[in-house]
């Protein structure tokens, strides 16, 4: 029961923060020390991991071509799926990163009487993934309101759009609903779909459960467990953190520390887990290279020029007699070769 372990782990984290933050003096630990540590691990770890990747070269040009490449004038190139210029690569990567194009590619065929085949797309995974990632991004951006002052126009605009439906007070964020919905579906898929369940590891369930718990604690804090949740105090702490002058002067509800601790865990966990796909998606050589390897020479830094083919001279030496017999031109005539020998 791999997913059960993830639940236990997250419950343990919640207990640690919930109880720990109530011990006098520990607020500073949970409110300041842990977040600092987490963000340092996140940024440092992320940069470190990307640098580690960058240390290895891309020896060969190996784009996966998903359409017709650039060739003759009258053959139409599929510029997005088989890019040959940097601009086309950028377009391909953009669609890949922002619209998850590869996941969108799934098609299913159905045979009808006739027999006729029709195609429909099977795009649930794509939809859930898109929903989840975009709401996550929106939520991260939205939280910036707690970290910056004065708040720029665009941030208020995002906030406004996200709470467009004006449901309840404080207003319900659409992104919160989308995040929990998306994550529940991604999680449910891992449980219900037998082959996805079979390939899933602990480290697939854990981030899902963790992010779900983060969303849930956030919602609880915003709408339900409001005791000692005064956003002014919370922003004061957040602003203190980003201006390196953290202060905790007032009592803040335990739910806030739980939320913060879970976020810190996620940040610290991020660079050392599969969540690094956030950086990796930019660096995948099968996607971020132009299919121009015949038009432009790609350089492999560790290419060993000393590796030479079995030489023609050696080949001719071995088979000269037969070659001459068969009338195949040779570099050295039989007699000359013999003379040399």
């Amino acid at each position: 029961m791999k997913y059960a372990f993830s639940f236990l782990a997250v419950i343990a984290l919640i207990l640690i923060a919930g109880l720990g933050s109530q011990i006098p003096g520990m607020q500073y630990f949970f409110g300041v020390a842990i977040p600092y540590l987490a963000i340092m691990l996140f940024v440092g770890g992320f940069v470190y991991r990307v640098m580690q990747w960058a240390k290895s070269p891309v020896p060969f040009s190996i784009p996966t071509t998903c359409g017709q490449g650039a060739s003759l004038d009258f053959i139409k190139q599929d510029k997005l799926d088989c890019p040959s210029k940097t601009s086309e690569v950028v377009a391909r990567m953009f669609l890949e990163i922002f619209l998850f194009r590869s996941l969108f590619r799934n098609t299913k065929s159905e045979i009808h009487d006739g027999p006729k085949i029709s195609y429909e797309s099977s795009k649930w995974l794509w939809l859930f993934a898109l929903l989840f990632h975009y709401s996550f991004l929106l939520i991260v951006i939205r939280h910036m309101r707690l970290f910056i002052d004065p708040i720029p126009f665009w941030l208020s605009a995002i906030e406004g759009v996200d709470s467009m439906l004006q449901i309840g007070a404080p207003t319900l964020y659409l992104s919160s609903v989308a995040l929990l919905g998306g994550i529940a579906l991604l999680f449910g898929r891992r449980l219900v779909n037998p082959h996805v369940r079979y390939i899933s590891l602990n480290n697939d369930y854990f981030p899902l459960v963790l992010i779900f718990a983060i969303g849930l604690t956030g919602i609880l804090m915003r709408y339900f467990l409001r005791t000692n949740i005064d956003i002014i105090n919370i922003k004061n702490l957040a602003m203190g953190l980003v201006t390196f002058s953290p202060v905790i002067t007032v009592k803040i509800g335990a739910i806030f520390y739980i939320h913060l601790f879970l976020v810190s865990t996620l940040l610290a966990y991020f660079p050392f887990s599969k969540l690094m796909h956030m950086g990796g998606v930019f660096m995948s050589p099968t996607r971020n290279m132009a299919n121009d390897s015949r038009a432009k020479r790609h350089i492999n830094p560790w290419n060993d020029p000393e590796i030479k083919p079995h030489s023609y001279a050696g080949y001719e030496d071995e088979f000269r007699e037969f070659m001459v017999d068969a009338g195949i031109p040779v570099e050295k005539e039989l007699s000359a070769a013999k003379d040399e020998a």
Binding site: K108, S109, E110, I111, P194, H195
Partner: peptide
């Protein structure tokens, strides 16, 4: 072995 996939997936070509 992967019976569930074979049962569920209805696309004859997939």
């Amino acid at each position: 072995k992967s019976s569930s996939f074979f049962i569920k997936e209805k696309d004859k070509f997939a």
